[in-house]
Design a protein around this nucleic acid. Structure first.
Lengths: 196, 196
DNA sequence: GTTATTTCATACTAACTAGTATTTTTTATG
DNA sequence: CATAAAAAATACTAGTTAGTATGAAATAAC
C-alpha cells in the first residue's frame, strides 16, 4: 500500500473508533488529526469535508466488515435458525470490535445522521438492505429444506430480527451491562423456535 | 400557572421539539432562545446548564407523557396481547407527537447521551424500567387469566418487545417511510400470538 | 536529474458554542 | 406605596468548530 493510501486508511480507522465511542458530531477533526498524528493539510487533501470522510467510513470500513463477517457467512447457510442465533449472539457478546456501552456503529450513525444527511442515509441504507436481503434469502432456503414453516414471511422476519438487534444494543448502551443481552437472547431463541 | 413557570415550560417544550428533530448536541441554546423568544438571561435563570435543561425535559416532559399515555393504560389491562399490539401500533402509526423520520425521542436521547452523561442515563433508565415493569406485570396478569402460556417469561418478553420497538423506530428513521412499520407490526402480531 | 504532480505542513479565519456579568424590569409582600 | 426578591434583558467572553490559503516536501514521469 502506498504511503498516501496508508494515511488515508489510518484516518478512516481511527476516526471510526472515535466516532463509534463518542458520536459523529462530537468527534472533531482536530481530535481526529491529533490521535492520528496526521496534519490538517493531509486530512483535507484526502477528504474535501468531514461528511465526505464520514461516508467513506461507511463505504470503506463498515460495509466490507459487515459483508465479510455477517453477510457472506449467512449466504450459504444450511441451518439459518442456528446461524441467525449465532450471528446475533456473536455480535452481542463476542465481537471484539464492539463494546456494550457504545452500541451498534451502524445503528448509532443511523440515529445521529438521518434525516439530516442524505449521503449517510443512502450508504447506511444500502448496508442494511444487503443484510436484510441475505436474511430473507436464508429463510427461503430454510423453508425449502423444511426447517422453517412455509407460512413464515421472510421479509417480516428480517425486519423483526434486525429491529430487535438494534433495539437491544441501544438498551445495552443504556444499562452498560451484558446481562440484558443474555435475557434478550433467551427470548430471541424462543422466537426463532416459533418459526419452525 | 405563574408567568415564570410558563416560560420555563415553554423552554422545555420547544427545546424538546428541537432536540427530538435535530438531536441534543446539535441543538444550541441560541437556537432554543430564538424559537422560544426567551432571552439568554431568562434561560439561565431557569436552568444552570444546558444539561440541566436536558434532564428536566426527561423528567418533566417525557416521563409524564409516557406514564399517562403508555404505562397507566397497560397497568390494568385485561387483555395484554391486544393492548401491547395497540400500544406499539399507536406509537408507530398514530401518535401525533412522533414522526417517522425522527424516531423515538427516548431512544434517540439514549443513543446520543449514554455513556457520556450519567444524569441522562439515570433519568432515561428510570423511565424505561417503569415501562418494562408494567409490561412484565401485564404478562403475569394475562397468565393468571389464561391468555398467555405459563412457561412464558415476562421479563424476556418485555425486553423483546421494547427492543423491537426501539429498533424499528431507528429503521423507520433510516427509510423515512411508514411501510416498514406495517411489515414490522405483522410479525409483531405473529410473535404475540406465539405467546398464547 | 529536472520537472510536474501528488502529498503533506503551518498558520490562519469566520462562525458558532456554552456560559457569565451586570443591569433592568416585573412581581410578591409588608 | 415601598421594598425586597424573583425574573428577565443585554452585552460580553473564552474556547471550539469546520474549513482555507499558501507554501514546502515527497514522489513519479520523463
Amino acid at each position: 500500500m502506498s504511503k498516501a493510501a496508508n494515511t488515508r486508511l489510518t484516518i478512516l480507522q481511527k476516526a471510526f473508533e472515535l466516532i463509534y465511542s463518542k458520536g459523529y458530531q462530537t468527534t472533531s477533526i482536530d481530535e481526529i488529526i491529533a490521535t492520528t498524528q496526521v496534519t490538517k493539510g493531509a486530512f483535507y487533501y484526502h477528504f474535501k469535508t468531514k461528511d465526505e470522510m464520514g461516508v467513506a467510513i461507511i463505504e470503506e470500513i463498515l460495509k466490507p466488515t459487515m459483508l465479510g463477517n455477517f453477510i457472506k457467512p449467512i449466504e450459504n447457510s444450511e441451518n439459518p435458525i442456528e446461524d441467525f442465533y449465532n450471528m446475533i449472539s456473536y455480535l452481542l457478546l463476542e465481537d471484539p470490535l464492539l463494546d456494550v456501552k457504545y452500541g451498534c456503529p451502524v445503528g448509532n450513525l443511523t440515529q445521529e445522521m438521518t434525516p439530516w444527511n442524505n449521503q449517510f442515509s443512502k450508504a447506511l441504507s444500502e448496508l442494511v438492505d444487503q443484510w436484510m436481503l441475505t436474511i430473507e434469502k436464508a429463510i427461503l432456503r430454510a423453508q425449502t429444506l423444511g426447517l422453517i414453516r412455509k407460512d413464515v414471511n421472510g421479509q417480516q422476519v428480517a425486519f423483526f430480527v434486525m429491529s430487535g438487534y438494534w433495539g437491544i444494543r441501544n438498551f445495552g448502551k443504556l444499562k452498560d451491562s451484558n446481562s440484558c443481552y443474555i435475557v434478550y437472547l433467551k427470548e430471541f431463541r424462543n422466537y426463532l423456535n416459533s418459526l419452525k
